[in-house]
Design a protein around this nucleic acid. Structure first.
Length: 154
DNA sequence: GCCAACGTTGGC
DNA sequence: GCCAACGTTGGC
């Protein structure tokens, strides 16, 4: 079982939305590096939910990968902001996963905390100027992160 | 709201 | 294939 980190803006889709919906197709990723990580995910992998573009940014909960190699339907929808005219039904460009809700942490593990604890090579989200929205996390780092999420409870 | 970082596009 | 211009991300 591998660990990942996936970013979303809570104004667009946050952990509370996923808690309500229980599962969600993670659509709209249009970056090849991020897509390649999505397509290398396996059923049962865990992913940390990261809230970006909010105050404070940070890791807010945990998800499970419940479906893999899902074709992102928004690439074929001209009315979608994620429409990709260069993609075709024969050979879709964009594959993704469906995530399932597992847990909302009692407190956000903030980006500030993450920067204090991890170096950029350990956790890419603390890299300066990092814009990648899907990234792998080593087991040891993931376990440390889970401990932080537990101990941050009041 | 600003702007640094960075990925993508397109002219050449 | 280079690289300037442009658009987007995302922290601050």
């Amino acid at each position: 079982m591998a660990y990942w980190l996936m970013k979303s803006e809570p104004d667009v889709y946050g952990i509370a939305d996923l808690e309500r919906d229980r599962t969600e197709l993670w659509d709209g990723v249009r970056n090849y590096q991020a897509r390649n990580f999505l397509t290398s995910m396996a059923l049962g992998d865990r992913a940390f939910f990261y809230h970006s573009n909010t105050k404070p940014p940070g890791v807010v909960g945990l998800m499970e990968i419940v479906a893999i190699n899902v074709v992102d339907p928004t690439q074929f929808d001209p009315s979608s902001q994620y429409y990709d005219p260069k993609s075709s039904l024969d050979s879709p460009r964009w594959h993704t996963v469906t995530v399932g809700y597992l847990e909302t942490f009692a407190q956000v593990v903030t980006l500030d905390q993450l920067k204090e604890t991890f170096i950029p090579d350990e956790l890419w989200v603390v890299r300066r100027g990092n814009r990648l929205s899907v990234m792998p996390i080593d087991d040891a780092i993931a376990e440390k992160l889970l401990q932080m999420a537990q101990t941050s409870r009041v």
